[in-house]
Simulated assay, not measured.
Amino acid sequence: MLARLLLACSCLLALAGAARADACTLVTELETGRVLKREGDCERRSSPASTFKVPLSLMGFDSGILEDEDEPAWPYRPEYKSWNEAWKGTKNPRSWLKDSVVWYSHVLTRELGEQRFKRYADAFGYGNRDVSGDRGKANGLTRAWLSASSLQISPVEQIAFLRKLLKQELPVSGKARDMTLAIMPVFPLPDGWTAYGKTGTGFQPRRDGTFDRSRQFGWFVGWAQKGERRILFARLIRDERKENSVASFRARDGLLAELPALIAD
């Protein structure tokens, strides 16, 4: 009887956890395309949030606005009004990706300008390619990739973009690709593997297009590498209720915990 009660309780807890979040996990081999795991709705699009810093890095280095891992070093200004203390102070390309600094992205996109920004998004075939921003507000340079704004991408499309990046199939210079790979956040894994990935968090959209601060979404996208073997991954979480922890950190930590078993030789 006790065993039956424990089993029933565990099933109820699992169902409750599933009801709290809608998630996709997609893990594939780069070279063969073999799917190691596909779970959830991986075709549904969402805002890329700070995972968009990866294509932004390519744009910045390819255009010459970004120079290397340490330059340009742009100072924080009070008018940026950053709520995150980690975003304050002088930032360079490496710390921009590491700390996911929003204002650094805005300085970069303004330097790019609307025409170049749109040309790159189109050339990359990134998601729905819509960098117009919030409807009727002409703010694409600073808003397009955030929360409920115009740019949308699915986990399947995230994997497709990463595949083109690693196979050198994007229309950018070799330096742009190499510098972007050099500044990606690094996560050591067991058995000689290393993961490279970017998180992204935002609020889910309501039907009227505004965003719901009570429900987050969270990404973790990137790849793991050991020698010549490379594994692409994308996880997207959509919370069904208010959570106190950051959705992208939950996506990252959960996937990093699962990866060793999925990619074991």
Rank of each mutant, 00 (worst) to 15 (best):
M1F: 10
L2A: 14
L2P: 02
R4M: 12
L5A: 15
L6N: 10
L6G: 09
L6M: 12
L7G: 12
C11Q: 14
L12V: 14
G17L: 15
A18V: 07
A18L: 15
A21T: 12
D22I: 08
A23T: 13
A23G: 07
E29R: 11
V35G: 01
G40Q: 01
D41I: 01
E43G: 15
S46E: 13
S46K: 08
A49H: 08
V54Q: 01
V54L: 12
P55Y: 07
P55K: 09
L56M: 13
S57T: 08
L58Q: 09
M59F: 05
G60N: 07
G60F: 02
D62M: 08
E67C: 08
D70V: 08
W74Y: 07
R77M: 14
R77K: 14
W83L: 14
N84P: 00
E85P: 11
W87T: 06
G89D: 07
G89C: 06
N92T: 13
R94L: 14
S95Q: 13
S95Y: 04
K98R: 15
V101S: 06
Y104P: 02
S105P: 03
V107Y: 08
L108Q: 06
G113Q: 04
R116M: 10
F117L: 03
K118Y: 01
Y120Q: 03
A121H: 01
A123G: 12
G125F: 13
G125W: 12
Y126W: 03
N128V: 08
V131Q: 01
R135H: 10
K137Y: 11
A138K: 14
L141H: 09
T142G: 10
T142C: 02
A144V: 08
A144L: 07
Q152L: 15
I153R: 01
S154C: 00
V156Y: 06
E157T: 07
I159T: 04
R163I: 00
R163F: 02
R163K: 15
L165S: 01
K167C: 11
V172N: 06
V172P: 02
S173V: 05
S173G: 15
K175M: 09
A176W: 04
M179R: 14
A182W: 03
A182P: 02
V186P: 00
P188S: 08
G192R: 04
Y196S: 04
G197T: 02
G197Y: 03
T199E: 05
G200S: 12
G202H: 07
Q204G: 03
P205Y: 03
S214W: 07
R215N: 10
Q216A: 06
W219E: 03
V221E: 01
V221C: 05
G222K: 02
G222H: 02
A224C: 10
A224L: 06
Q225L: 05
G227Q: 04
R230I: 07
R235W: 11
L236N: 13
E240A: 14
R241M: 11
E243W: 11
N244D: 14
S245G: 13
V246P: 00
A251H: 11
R252D: 05
G254C: 12
E258Q: 15
L259D: 02
L259V: 08
D265W: 10
